[in-house]
Design a protein around this nucleic acid. Structure first.
Lengths: 144, 144
DNA sequence: TATTGTTATACTCTATAACTATA
DNA sequence: TATAGTTATAGAGTATAACAATA
């Protein structure tokens, strides 16, 4: 009788999780010295890069649910890291942008974050890392 | 001034998360019809594959913290999916094994689970999936 | 002294549904 | 009617420390 499943080593969901835990471990250590959670950090990274976005888009980009995001943004707005304003074209929408304080936070942790990923690049190999990122990107775009 | 970070599309932690969310989405739908959470499902998969393990090892394999695992195993034991027994050699340890009911649960969801991953393999490509799994496996083993 | 596992505790995020306002 | 976002609520998992038993 053949086993009903791929071995967990060959299970894509578990492999993705294990790889992510590996990479996130030092980043979590870094973020523990910051005023934001891992999830809030993702929101800041997305806003810093993409510019102002509505909440639905942020939720999709940062892999969060809208109700979770609402709560997080309320906190982050109170802490001064993001600002929210209504969309004049579509008044159902709220446009969220990163503030100077939010950018300062990002910059403050840019160095340690890049150190971590630089070390990874060194031991794992730049070319293989590029290949991995390409594959992950394609996977995300694959029809299921 | 160059941007201080890689684009989030090229950020490994976010790429891993997005890819995982993509793959997990249909699997979560599947598990919603089961009596176990995503995390408990991981524990069952690990036990089914590796055989009886102590809790520290399960936690490492399934990417869970020991206190979380303790609570989950108490529930799973009450539900009859796992059994726990003391280790005669080292009486600090608890050995956990999957029960017949646990295996039944695994088998019950083997087909839909493999369907999902089969569809993925079809659209993403078998060879690229193998490459991706190899890279993820290597990443997990990389020194940081 | 170090390790395995448990308990306690506080907190955060997840998940769903119901609701408001706007389109 | 559908969509964007909020609120409410329940529950599960995360994280840390402190503890017990054993090594």
């Amino acid at each position: 009788m053949t086993p009903p499943f791929r071995r967990t080593q060959r299970s894509l969901p578990i492999a993705l999780l294990r790889a992510r835990e590996k990479v996130m471990s030092p980043i979590r250590d870094m973020l523990s010295a910051s005023p934001v959670s891992e999830q809030k950090w993702r929101v800041l990274r997305v806003l810093d890069e993409a510019g102002p976005l509505d909440q639905k888009r942020i939720a999709a980009e940062a892999c969060l649910l809208l109700p979770s995001l609402t709560r997080m943004l309320q906190g982050m707005e109170a802490e001064g890291f993001v600002a929210r304003s209504g969309d004049a074209q579509d008044r159902r929408r709220t446009i969220v942008s990163i503030t100077p304080a939010g950018r300062d936070l990002i910059r403050q942790f840019a160095a340690p974050s890049n150190d971590i990923l630089g070390r990874l690049e060194e031991s794992f190999g730049r070319e293989r890392l590029e290949t991995l990122l390409d594959l992950l990107d394609d996977l995300q775009k694959t029809d299921l």
